[in-house]
Design a protein around this nucleic acid. Structure first.
Length: 121
DNA sequence: AGCGTGACGAGTA
DNA sequence: ATACTCGCCACGC
């Protein structure tokens, strides 16, 4: 009573917004944590990351990635499976090191939110 | 109230 | 390209 608390079963408004953006990202494309934060004009990359860590399971979490294109620690193979399935531009190691998980090709995979779905080839 | 931590990002060495 | 530092901001102890 004296203080406000989050109603169980519902998410904080900020979290809801973040998840909403995550769902907007078209398949084969990704957005960085920083981009999402900027797009929301609120919070920062770390806040977005926190939301994803807590509630990301309800949305295509693999489309929200780090700016350097590294896959999520602990979910690399899971994310990689989705990327291959969606045709997300990956930057496979030219060094052909086995066991080395490829990183995302941010240059091509990064989505600016222009609903552009156009060809990048 | 202070301190450490984290699904971050950019800059520097 | 990798490693490290600093800035950022919310949360937990």
């Amino acid at each position: 009573m004296s203080e406000e608390s989050e109603p169980a079963g519902d998410l904080p408004e900020y979290a809801e917004r973040v998840l909403e953006v995550a769902e907007l990202i078209p398949p084969g494309r990704v957005m960085t944590y920083g981009d999402v934060a900027e797009w929301l004009e609120e919070g920062g990359p770390r806040q977005v990351g926190r939301v994803m860590s807590l509630y990301g399971g309800a949305v295509p979490w693999w489309r929200v990635v780090r700016a350097d294109g590294a896959l999520l620690p602990g979910h690399e193979l899971g994310a990689l499976g989705h990327y291959r399935e969606e045709g997300t531009p990956l930057r496979e190691a030219s060094r052909a090191a086995e066991g080395h998980v490829p990183r995302l090709d941010m240059k091509r995979a990064r989505w600016d939110g222009r609903t552009r779905t156009e060809a990048h080839n």
